[in-house]
Design a protein around this nucleic acid. Structure first.
Length: 274
DNA sequence: GGCCAGGGTAGAA
DNA sequence: TTCTACCATGGC
């Protein structure tokens, strides 16, 4: 892939491993929109339009450096896939999702988003988060920014309940207050992934799976393996057995995919869920 | 109309 | 430490 910074963003050439649909619909992010002709994605207070122009892809944004990092453009996914091939199910999964990239998202936005994701459908998750941004986020040109922790801490559980958050309303209110009150999200990177997972689990509404999602999508950790209902199905496919605990499944899958677990997990999730 | 979702919490065993 | 009941909501 060849990358060129231009005035209105970034242009990608020969981008075999960059596909907007693969990246945005593989369950790692919820603030994206299919505009028919192109996709848009919002991260914090920044927006990026992903426009196909023949064999080129134009990332239209006023902050190219931010989205260069966000889309993980300095990592060769061709090299990642080469390393993954040969491991169980990776031949098919990396071909089916060859345009996937793992986004480097904002940790706070990731915490809030994945608290909402728990035991929930992706279309509904998208809706709750969007209503959250419209009601509490700063208004920008044609969209709304993700609200700050202070803004989220300024409303009560009933507010989140009225947004349709269900029983996660209490979790959101308490965790927003915790983070606005000084919970050290900025020090998570000083911890190894197991310790970081435990630390994140002290947030109300964050359990082992959500903590792994936060580490993978918000802190770019690859040595984690979020186990949800889809990964349980994948596990049954790979090992021909089911009904083991998420903890055991996680350990077995990390043993299989090692330091590439995060990548493998995402290809497997996308391949299974479709 | 029932099933299920990128699960977590609190309490019991 | 691990197991269980319970949880709100709405897309399908």
């Amino acid at each position: 892939m060849i990358k060129e910074f231009v005035l209105d963003g970034i242009v990608l050439y020969e981008a075999k491993h960059f596909d907007a649909k693969d990246i945005l619909t593989c369950g790692q992010v919820f603030r994206y929109f299919d505009n028919g002709s192109h996709y848009s994605v919002i991260s914090l207070d920044k927006k990026c339009d992903i426009v196909k122009e023949g064999d080129k892809i134009r990332l239209v944004t006023d902050d190219g450096e931010y989205f260069n990092r966000y889309f993980d453009l300095d990592v060769s996914y061709g090299a990642v896939i080469e390393r993954l091939k040969g491991l169980p199910f990776m031949e098919e999964a990396t071909e089916n999702g060859k345009g996937i990239r793992i986004l480097k998202q904002d940790p706070f936005e990731t915490v809030v988003s994945f608290i909402i994701s728990a035991n929930n459908h992706i279309p509904r998750i998208k809706g709750i988060i969007e209503r959250l941004c419209v009601s509490l986020g700063e208004k920008k040109d044609g969209y709304y920014a993700f609200p700050t922790a202070e803004r989220l801490a300024g409303v009560d559980a009933k507010f989140y309940s009225d947004l349709g958050a269900g029983y996660r309303a209490e979790y959101l209110a308490r965790t927003a207050a915790d983070i606005a009150g000084g919970f050290p999200l900025d020090k998570i990177n000083e911890l190894d992934s197991e310790s970081a997972n435990k630390k994140l689990c002290t947030l109300i509404g964050v359990g082992p799976k959500v903590a792994d999602c936060i580490l993978l999508f918000g802190y770019a950790r690859q040595d984690v393996f979020p186990v949800d209902t889809w990964i349980k199905k994948v596990y049954a496919d790979i090992f021909s057995e089911g009904a083991r605990s998420p903890k055991e499944i996680r350990r077995a899958l990390i043993a299989t995919y090692g330091e590439l677990s995060g990548y493998a997990q995402q290809y497997l999730f996308y391949n299974k869920r479709g």
